[in-house]
Design a protein around this nucleic acid. Structure first.
Length: 485
DNA sequence: AAAAAAT
């Protein structure tokens, strides 16, 4: 359903609704993963919250996100009530102003309503939180960091680590926007490729960066941990994955705990596979909170998924140029995901050769080029962006309605198995905040077909087939059915 | 080299 008026009031939650939900609280014993606290009796409450408001309007692609259930597990004695308004969170007026004036928020989104009371209230327990792509996770931990800072203390009090430089930059931008009236200082610590100069110690109150650089600053004693109150792992499952940044992240956490064992740690991601979930539960402090979304509910209902069988690579290129990007301007911006840096460059060259101008981003580019390409795309100067999985996670550009998987995401050590987490994150680049979107998976050969089937089975979602890659009408039907034409 | 980050 499309939003009707630009400033239509978001639906409100009646007091009756609230009481029902609170009365529905069930108390069950839950086993605590940490061995040290196994003997203690733990109470867990499962709270199922109905549809909350999402603060978006005035966009033809917007529709109300599906109502979904978030499972809450709280340990310890602290009861939490969801925040239906930002006022209930006792934020400083400067931060409230940032939320309303700069961020243009009206009310907390669902994940915000549930997680913020847990983040902001003593005893500041660790939190493992999962929520859909584009549901407002960044604002949760950003607000969490901002509101825990002592403004008088000019020293690092919050650190956020992210899997890519682009994400670190983007998160810093959100934080500065939200904290515009707070006077809180912040900076980005990422490797820029430029020559290192001798640096003074960091005095910024909030530091956002990539794990390698943050770890380096800590080891060089340029990033003090003495006053640290909160550590955030964005895309936490990847930050804790064996083939992700597990070593770096654990190292940073260890260093922090040495100095500052009570530092609050927040883990945020749209995906947590079982292995990572268990590991996260192992490394948090005994008493902690968890929020999870059911696997079946994770797939984005607002993003329609398609597959297109292509006889060969050239057919894939033709589909992109003549069948999909034909409508480019009308359906919004597009990201084309490829598996390797090499195929990113190859596809780029091929498209340019046949007369279609695109830009490409991948990790081998110089940082300044990466920055420029992201900026052009975010400014709407470019329409189509080819990317490796560099941008698969977290990249937030609300004009992206179309994602094309030129290559399906596969496990690097198991090329016949899909990487379902990456798939989720890629399609999450479309349909930000409940907007409509479409994904086209370009398949070539039986191996691709098998991988696609496994993805479909894993999420239990429908992936419709576009009957004929040569037939323009088939794509019109698909795009229309996705709500994009 | 899978990509990412980074010395």
């Amino acid at each position: 359903m499309a939003a009707t008026a630009a400033d239509s009031a978001t639906p409100t939650i009646s007091a009756a609704d609230t009481t029902t939900h609170l009365a529905d609280l069930k108390h069950d014993a839950v086993e605590e993963p940490s061995s040290s606290s196994k003997s203690e009796e733990k109470i867990a409450s499962e709270i199922e919250i109905g549809n909350l408001t999402i603060n978006e309007s005035n966009n033809k692609f917007f529709h109300d996100p599906e109502s979904s259930n978030i499972k809450t597990i709280t340990s310890g004695e602290t009861p939490y009530a969801s925040a239906f308004t930002f006022e209930e969170l006792n934020l400083l007026p400067e931060l409230l102003k940032g939320l309303y004036v700069e961020m243009k928020y009206e009310k907390p989104s669902k994940i915000q309503a549930i997680s913020l009371p847990m983040i902001l209230n003593p005893p500041y327990l660790d939190l493992i939180a999962q929520a859909h792509n584009g549901s407002g996770k960044t604002a949760c931990f950003t607000l969490g960091m901002l509101s825990r800072i002592d403004p008088k203390l000019k020293a690092p009090q919050a650190i956020c680590i992210c899997p890519t430089r682009e994400l670190a930059i983007q998160n810093l931008e959100v934080l500065r926007k939200m904290g515009k009236y707070s006077g809180i200082t912040s900076e980005c610590e990422i490797h820029t490729g430029k020559k290192q100069t001798i640096r003074p110690p960091i005095t910024s109150q909030i530091v956002i960066g990539t794990p390698g650089t943050i770890g380096h600053r800590i080891r060089a004693n340029k990033l003090s941990l003495s006053y640290l109150k909160i550590l955030v792992l964005d895309e936490a499952d990847h930050m804790l994955a064996e083939d992700g940044f597990k070593a770096d992240s654990v190292h940073i956490m260890d260093k922090i705990r040495c100095v500052n064992p009570q530092c609050q740690v927040l883990f945020f991601s749209a995906t947590f596979n079982v292995t990572v979930k268990e590991f996260a539960a192992k490394i948090v402090k005994g008493n902690h909170n968890q929020l999870f979304v059911k696997k079946e509910e994770l797939s984005l209902q607002s993003v329609k998924q398609y597959k297109v069988n292509c006889p060969d690579e050239l057919a894939k290129v033709m589909v992109i140029k003549d069948r999909i990007l034909e409508f480019g301007e009308r359906v919004g911006q597009t990201i084309i995901f490829v598996r390797t840096r090499n195929s990113a460059m190859t596809l780029h060259r091929t498209l340019v050769e046949i007369g279609y101008d695109v830009t490409t981003i991948q990790g081998a580019l110089k940082q300044e080029d990466r920055d420029k390409i992201v900026k052009e795309f975010k400014d709407g100067l470019t329409q189509v962006l080819i990317s490796t999985d560099l941008l698969a996670r977290g990249f937030d550009q609300d004009q992206v309605n179309l994602v094309i998987n030129y290559d399906l995401p596969v496990k690097h050590n198991h090329p016949t198995e899909p990487d379902c987490e990456v798939y989720m994150h890629r399609i999450g680049r479309a349909g930000r905040f409940g907007r409509k979107g479409a994904v086209f998976n370009l398949l070539c050969g039986d191996a691709d077909e098998m991988i696609m089937t496994k993805i479909k089975t894993h999420f239990g979602t429908e992936i419709e087939e576009v009957p004929d890659w040569r037939n323009e009408e088939d794509f019109v039907v698909a795009l229309r059915s996705a709500g994009l034409l």
